[in-house]
Design a protein around this nucleic acid. Sequence first.
DNA 1: AAAAATATTTAGATTAAACTAAATTTTTAA
DNA 2: TTAAAAATTTAGTTTAATCTAAATATTTTT
Lengths: 217, 217
Amino acid sequence: MQTLSTEDYLKAIYHVSQSSSGAVATTSIAKQIGAKPSSVTDMFKKLSDQNLVKYQKYQGVSLTNEGVKTALRIVRKHRLWESFLVSHLNFNWDEVHQVAEQLEHIQSEKLTNELERFLDYPTHDPHGDPIPNRALFMKTYSKILLTELPVNKEGVCIGVKDNSSGFLRYLDRRQIGIGTTLQVLHREDFDDSLHIQAGKSTLMITKKTAENIYVKP
Amino acid sequence: MQTLSTEDYLKAIYHVSQSSSGAVATTSIAKQIGAKPSSVTDMFKKLSDQNLVKYQKYQGVSLTNEGVKTALRIVRKHRLWESFLVSHLNFNWDEVHQVAEQLEHIQSEKLTNELERFLDYPTHDPHGDPIPNRALFMKTYSKILLTELPVNKEGVCIGVKDNSSGFLRYLDRRQIGIGTTLQVLHREDFDDSLHIQAGKSTLMITKKTAENIYVKP
DNA sequence: AAAAATATTTAGATTAAACTAAATTTTTAA
DNA sequence: TTAAAAATTTAGTTTAATCTAAATATTTTT
């Protein structure tokens, strides 16, 4: 049986490996988890003993098939709970993360599957991230960053890269959310800032903001 | 901040102190928690340092006001989650305990209060136990054991003393549940067994069964 | 290609929660 | 009211997850 902590590490390894190629480095997990690299090394060894990761000294880790499955089971629970909090318990999309971090560790297959049924088999969570189904399969539809959307072409916001509540609240203030229609009106060469149409209003956003918003063209 | 384990101990102390008078003995908690008495002593000291219990060597513990509050907050969460599992996630009343044991430790006041609102402020859980409200107050209406119900007087089943899934499934098979109308038709002097009317059917139950069923006359 | 910087691992210590075995206190019974 | 039994505590150990500091390996820069 897994302790909470090994689950946290597996999830972190999964997320880091999604947003970069090759093996996952000790330091990247240390940053993600908020632990010292030496603690991460210890855990890499433990996970390796359990055949959840492939580990070679000084070369980082990669998840085994079993490790991916375990990680996806946690991601599934995390995203289902986030969906529930927003759809039924009046949570805002910037408030759900911390609570879902706890709920994702609850062990009960029946609970997870019944929650999924109760929510009517959602495919995406409140941040636009796909929810693995019972077979741990998820549809990842093609998406591009707002920085890559050609000028004057319309797109729909379908997700965010940065899930921090600071960024999400900022988007709320700008009235940008999942489903908002976006269009780049002008790209400023000087500082890469963008003039955009967001729903009915026009506004200016920085490059940094734009590269944390996913759109479907 | 409390660890999971101190919460478990506080809840155990609360429950034991409800069903007996005076201080709570080390052994009774050891049995309840499934730990060795020496571990319980260690925890008693820790809880005492945090002013959650009053502890005197060899004399057991009693909860302080703060300790009672903390215990009631956990009981509140436990019973709200049990209610949710039964009312919305197709759990049977004998299946909820283990999962609620995990869910009761989730830390988020907003979650608890929103769950309560979502359930429309339930006053009792699926086993008939009262749910503390936001102010940690609960109505404990007067109830008697089925063994104390006078012969030929009608009563309604409003709870059970033994919450084990074995007993609950036994009651399911006998078609006895919360709300079932019960009436003692005959008390057998020889072995204290009871002939009862339960809803539309008559059946025989042992003394042991009867003294685990609460009724409202 | 050597030196410097960075990343990673090892060794040893710490903390919380448990344990066993032995010692002590309290309770029960003769 | 002692002796025996039961309950409780103490002392010392274990385990999992962390840490710091030192050692080692890898990568980058000159």
